[in-house]
Design a protein around this nucleic acid. Sequence first.
DNA 1: CCTGAAATCATACCGAT
DNA 2: ATCGGTATGATTTCAGG
Lengths: 162, 162
Amino acid sequence: MAESSKNLQQETELDEVDRKIIAELQTNGRITNAELAERVGVAASTCIARVRSLVSRRVITGFTASVDPRAMGLGLQVLVSVTVRSGARQRIRELSEEIAALPEVMQLFFLGGDEDFIIHLAARDADHVRDFVIEHLSAHPAVSSTRTSIVFSHFQNPVRSE
Amino acid sequence: MAESSKNLQQETELDEVDRKIIAELQTNGRITNAELAERVGVAASTCIARVRSLVSRRVITGFTASVDPRAMGLGLQVLVSVTVRSGARQRIRELSEEIAALPEVMQLFFLGGDEDFIIHLAARDADHVRDFVIEHLSAHPAVSSTRTSIVFSHFQNPVRSE
DNA sequence: CCTGAAATCATACCGAT
DNA sequence: ATCGGTATGATTTCAGG
């Protein structure tokens, strides 16, 4: 068996046009197809076919608006590291899925290593963080310990292969 | 001085229409204005004015395509916690900005607490991670220590105020 | 992968609330 | 001051080559 037994189509070849399209759409997800085509140097019909192919192949997984949490009344961000009790390992996935569904949770990293996962939380204030940790983590029978760190600032880059 | 001395316009009021628009655009950033208006229940002209206002007020900070790192040949994600030497505290910001500009860096969290920042890295393989840590972190005179954890999976939610 | 025509969409303007 | 309807020009999209 070669290395082609993966459930993801890693073999999906991306040519120069695909990569340019991806880069443009990461910078401006609402660019018109006409302008995207011009920047990339192909016809509009070709361009839209490429974009649709990238989406259907799951290279592009979606288009989203980025929102400032502070404008939504969420002025405090924290990272919470969670360690699961050794007797409850088999419940990690279940617990993490519960947590990922909560509205305060911006991101969840499911980890190997000392911690089992890290939650990136957006909260109104310190009380909100405390209530979240107590209610959803400390009180949960599978959780062994948590550690909360304040996020002073946060940068997010587009995915670039080089 | 009241609590209005902030550089962010927290006072930006968001009504029901604004919140619906934000929710739709987080789910589908490429929705047409016509369909967005219909879903939200306002006229197209009203809708486009609201969207432009949200963007100019920096409530919406941008529109981006989400890309699967695996499709870009980046099959391994890790979190690297970095602690800065106590004698080099004043260089934390400089160092973090250098690192945020590197192509492997998807996110950088600038923290208070035991660790000074956490880097979310997308890499081709374990060798790539090792090279990154050695070249950009261990070799840097301001870095005291690093800790690398593999990311098994990663969820990202839209920002929801409730 | 490109051209061109029909359908759809974005947006400025203006009256009404 | 903001909203909703209408007209016009731009854009998308699907044939077909």
